[in-house]
Nucleic acid binder design. Sequence first.
RNA 1: GGCCCCAUCGUCUAGCGGUAAGGAUCCCAGGUUUUCAUCCUGGUUACAGGAGUUCGAGUCUCCUUGGGGUCACCA
Length: 462
Amino acid sequence: MTVTRFAPSPTGYLHIGGLRTALFSWLYAKHTGGTFRLRIEDTDMARNSEEALAAIIEAFDWVGLSYEGEVVYQSKRFDIYKKYIDQLLAEGKAYKCYMDKEELDALREEQMARKERPRYDGRYRDFTGTPPVGREPVIRIKAPQEGMIYFTDGVKGEITIAASEVDDFIIARSDGTPTYNFVVAVDDALMGLTHVIRGDDHLYNTPKQIVVYKALGFKIPHFYHVAMINNEQGKKLSKRDGATDVMEYKKLGFLPEALLNFLVRLGWSHGDQEIFSLDEMIALFDPKDINRSASNYNLDKLMWLNAHYIKNTPNEKLAQLLKPFGVDISEHDKLELLLDATKERGKTLVELAEQIKLILHTPETYDEKAVQKAFKGDAKEILADFSAMLQGWERELHLPCDYHEVLEHFVSSKEIGFGKIGMPLRVSLLGSMTGSGLDEIMSILGMQETVARIQKVIDMVE
RNA sequence: GGCCCCAUCGUCUAGCGGUAAGGAUCCCAGGUUUUCAUCCUGGUUACAGGAGUUCGAGUCUCCUUGGGGUCACCA
């Protein structure tokens, strides 16, 4: 049974890089019929924040990732860690180190001065004397002093790191609280993790965690270290590069399925396939197909995917999604027509909302260039004639094809080209030269409003 | 700086010793559309460099270069 997890530290919002590793972990659990767990890495009491945790859960909710079981809070498991630390102490696999921070800093400076790698020198490793008085020790674990630590990474392959690179690192602070590399290993083991998928910034933590696994006799899971997502210039992704907070994408009018599809294709692929529904991702995702190199964030591709998903979202649902963007058309009797006429013209919900507002509201302003171009010559007269024809039309006007019939009849009887009436008509209806089809717009507006908008322009234009 | 990882079109990627190096995005051109968008068709652009191994290297090895990560009583 596969068990994967996402283990963020609650220090900020959910980053899109974090969402991708969470997605990979979640997909693999689903793919194998296993479980996906959520654990909060909050052992540093000074840096926790309730809001951050809420933000992470909110983002999970929005994109539709679900975790199984209770959320594990490391801050509530200190007694468990304490037990294992005592065990290691009793077995001689860990020891108390009485060096304080000042001494440690001094040691580091010496080593740096000698151009050596700063590392703990192991001076208390076999200490048997009388400890300094009035000083609370930290607990260090005994790491192997020679040889190699090796493991197989599911993404990178065989990784070997000299044991000399890993020093006797601290597993418990002088105040007794355990540290990251220790609790991660303990919890991953206790939670029964079979596959650990995480960012490759954790690659160097892995040998340390393996030291803990071995000392405690735990089974070592499979590791997958996923390369980072960089910005469009190939540099580290930062807030300056735009949205890094997952929830920011919601505000910008992105659909969660587009964001997920975008992220899953960053570092993972399945042949030439670009579009993946969640079910397809689950069916096809295998961590062995994760790419070893870093990838660049690419807004164009995200936009394209978002446009694709907007086009393929049912109108009813789109109407609901549009509400936070200032457009409530859920009760509109021409809802279907309205969205069919606009959904191919917006790459985001924000843009789609703008398109809809253009139709819903009588134009307050008119694009100057469009007016100049469209109202040369006898455009006003033509518009007036067309308006009259609409009003005098003997049959009821409802569907786009009804209006189309009027338009066709108009140009043929007047012996003019479509452009003669098309341009000024579009400007009168939308205030702009571009936009949805005229037949659709008039059908949505109805004859009365169409006539009113034409009249408004006629009255206004000199 | 030490250690570790990475390297195919601008970008995301396919490739798994023998291909005219494929797809997607972007961009450009044409078509459809009374406009715009969508959609369709076509086009430009890539194996970082250098040595090997091999009958034959994008694919294997080494070096160089260039990126990235990491070196806490943070996670």
